[in-house]
Simulated scan of single mutants.
Amino acid sequence: MNISSQFIIKNALLSSRLNKRAGNRLSVHGISLTEFLVMEYLYPHSESGISRIELADHLGMSASGVTRLLLPMEKTHLLEKVSNPRDSRQSLVRLTDTGKTLFDDASNSFDHIAADATSKLSEAQQQKAIELFEKLL
């Protein structure tokens, strides 16, 4: 097996394990890791909102997959649809005040999860890994 294949396999295994670990810890807040990632992306755009297509691109999901993901989050009032001022045919999505509060609380838990998961790496190693992943994304 070549080095590229080994890299992808190790990355997939790491992703799977981190997803499980983070998902278990975030479940106390009533959200999954994917829902947390949605909230993390929407948080800085809380006033203006983001299109579902942009969110799908960011998460690496299909538009219909994002719609299915967002529906329960809308029902629990974590986010809301808003009209796009530039295109009335397209709706945007943004965090509600409830969503912002939950994200703030979940972020504290996530920081602890991340610190535990990366405890064997120095800050310089973590920064290098971030730079490498950015090249691949």
Score class of each variant (00 low, 15 high):
F36G: 04
L59P: 02
L59H: 06
S48T: 15
S27R: 13
R52C: 06
E35Q: 15
I50L: 11
S46Y: 07
H58Q: 11
H29K: 14
H58V: 03
D57P: 00
L55D: 05
G30R: 13
L55P: 01
P44I: 07
L33K: 13
V28R: 15
E47D: 15
E47S: 15
I53W: 05
E40N: 13
V38I: 11
I31C: 05
D57A: 11
S64H: 09
H45R: 13
H45D: 06
V28S: 15
E47M: 11
S51K: 07
M39E: 06
A63T: 10
P44Y: 08
M39Q: 05
V28E: 15
A56C: 07
R52A: 07
Y43V: 10
G49V: 07
I31K: 09
H58R: 13
S27Y: 04
M39R: 02
G49P: 03
L33N: 12
I50C: 10
E40T: 08
P44F: 07
S64W: 03
R52I: 12
L55A: 08
E54C: 09
E54V: 05
G30I: 09
E40L: 10
M39K: 04
G30T: 11
I50W: 01
L37A: 10
T34S: 08
L33C: 09
E40R: 14
E54T: 12
S32A: 06
A63G: 07
F36E: 05
E35P: 00
Y43G: 02
S48R: 14
S48K: 15
S27N: 13
V38L: 02
S27C: 00
V38R: 01
S46V: 00
L55I: 06
H45F: 12
M61V: 00
R52V: 07
S64T: 14
S62A: 11
Y43L: 09
P44S: 09
A56L: 08
S46M: 06
I31V: 12
E54A: 15
E47R: 15
M61N: 06
H29E: 09
I31H: 03
S62K: 14
G60T: 03
H45L: 06
G60I: 04
H45V: 00
P44H: 11
H58L: 01
L55Y: 05
M61W: 02
F36I: 02
G30W: 10
G30M: 08
G49A: 10
G30S: 12
M61E: 10
V38M: 02
S51D: 11
I53Q: 15
I53G: 05
P44W: 08
R52E: 12
M61Q: 09
M39Y: 05
L33W: 08
I50A: 05
H29Q: 14
P44C: 09
V28C: 04
F36H: 07
S32G: 04
G49R: 08
G49T: 08
S51F: 01
A56I: 05
F36N: 06
E40H: 11
L55V: 05
H58E: 09
E47L: 12
